[in-house]
Nucleic acid binder design. Structure first.
Lengths: 192, 192
DNA sequence: AAAAAACATTGACCGAAATCAATTAAATGT
DNA sequence: ACATTTAATTGATTTCGGTCAATGTTTTTT
C-alpha cells in the first residue's frame, strides 16, 4: 500500500525502510467517488491529500457562481487548501474528485509527529512546496506574458494526461477562459 | 548590520545569538543603484537577495520586447530567480533596482554551509517558500477570478507601499495590463 | 535653469473574449 | 436500450482591453 506515495517521497529524499515504516503509521487511506467532495469552502482543511490513483481538482466559486479551477491533481500529485491547513482558517477552495480516486491523507498532527520522529521529512515538505511554487510561477508567467494560443499549446505539452482525462470546460476554467472561447481556439488551431 | 534580515528570520523561527553569528558569517552585503541589474536573463542566478532597504523587481521580456513584471521586492522581501538558483540553468528573469538599495546576498554554497551548521535554518527556508507560494496562489486566483476593478482594489489594499513607490506602468505590467488601461481604470475609480 | 528622458493621460479605432442563445453530441443513470 | 443530464459547438452581438498617436506632466541629467 501507498506505493506511489513512497516512490515519490524517495525521489525527493531517500528514506530507510525503518523511517518509511514510521511514516506509514501516520498515513490514512481514503477512497473517494467521482463528484464527491474532499473539502468544501468554509470548512477547515484538516488533511493534505496525495493522489495514489484518480484525479481531483481544487476550485473557487465567485459571487456569480462561476467556478475557477486552481489546480488539478492526478496520480502522484498532492492537493489541499494549504492556507486553511496551516492557519486553521475556513477554506476558500473546494476540492472534489473528477474520477473515482484513491488518496493518502496526512493530518496536521500526523505531519507534526512524523517531523518529530523523522526530521528528514522536513526536507521532503520543503522540496514539495518549492516544486509547487516553481510550477505556479511558471503558470503565472505564462498567463501574464504569453498569447492565448501559445499558452494552450504549452499546457497540452506540459500536461497531455490532463487534456485526455479532464472535460474541456474545466481546462478552460483553469486557463481563465469561457468554454466557448476554448472551443473556438481549438477549432482555429485544428484548421492550421 | 543585517538588522532587518535577522528580524524577519526570527519572526519565522527563533535563533540563538550563537546561531545568528554563524549565519552572519555567510552573508554578503551589497549596495545597488537604481536601474542597476542584479541579474540578467541568460546568466545563472548565483544569489538569493534579501532587501534591507530599497526596492527591486523581477521581470521577463517577451519576443516583442514587452516587459512582464513577476515580482516586486521592498524592504524585508526576498528576490531571486529561484529556478535558476536551484538548478543552475540560465535565468529567464531579469532583476533590477527601482531605487538605490541595500541587499543581503546568500550564495548557494553559503546556504549549504548554514544548513550544515544550523539545521534549524531549513525550517526558515521552508516557511519562506511556503509564504511565497501562498502569496502567489492568491495572486493567481485573483487574476483568474476577479474582475479588473476589484483586482486593482485588492492590490492597493494589500500593497499600499508599492503603489506609493513604484511607477504606475510597472503596476500595470504586474497586473498584466497596458499602462493606458490602468490609467483609464484609475480615472473610472476616481470618478465614483 | 534648461534640456532630455521617462511617465501619465486622453482620444479614436480595432480586435479578442464574453455573453446570450440555440443546437448537436456525448456520457451517465435506470 | 432509452431517457436524462452534462458537455461541446456554432452564431450573433456586446464589452472590455489593446493599439496607435498625440499631448501634457513629472523626473532626471547636465
Amino acid at each position: 500500500m501507498y506505493e506511489l506515495f513512497f516512490k515519490k517521497l524517495n525521489e525527493k529524499v531517500s528514506f530507510t525502510q525503518e523511517e518509511q515504516d514510521i511514516i506509514r503509521d501516520y498515513l490514512t487511506p481514503k477512497k473517494i467517488r467521482k463528484r464527491q467532495y474532499l473539502l468544501q469552502e468554509g470548512e477547515v482543511c484538516k488533511m493534505i491529500a496525495f493522489v495514489e490513483k484518480g484525479a481531483l481538482r481544487s476550485y473557487s466559486v465567485d459571487e456569480k457562481g462561476n467556478e475557477h479551477i486552481i489546480q488539478f491533481a492526478l496520480e502522484g500529485w498532492t492537493i489541499s487548501d494549504l492556507y486553511s491547513f496551516l492557519t486553521g482558517e475556513p477554506a476558500t477552495y473546494n476540492i472534489d474528485a473528477l474520477e473515482d480516486s484513491e488518496l493518502v491523507l496526512i493530518s496536521k498532527s500526523a505531519q507534526e509527529e512524523i517531523l518529530k520522529k523523522c526530521p528528514k521529512y522536513e526536507t521532503y515538505t520543503r522540496l514539495q512546496v518549492t516544486g509547487a511554487y516553481l510550477a505556479m510561477q511558471k503558470r503565472l508567467t505564462s498567463i501574464i506574458s504569453q498569447p492565448l494560443e501559445e499558452r494552450y499549446n504549452s499546457f497540452i505539452n506540459l500536461y497531455p494526461d490532463i487534456v485526455q482525462r479532464v472535460p474541456q470546460h474545466m481546462i478552460a476554467s483553469y486557463m481563465g477562459l469561457k468554454p466557448e472561447t476554448l472551443s473556438r481556439l481549438r477549432k482555429k488551431i485544428a484548421e492550421k
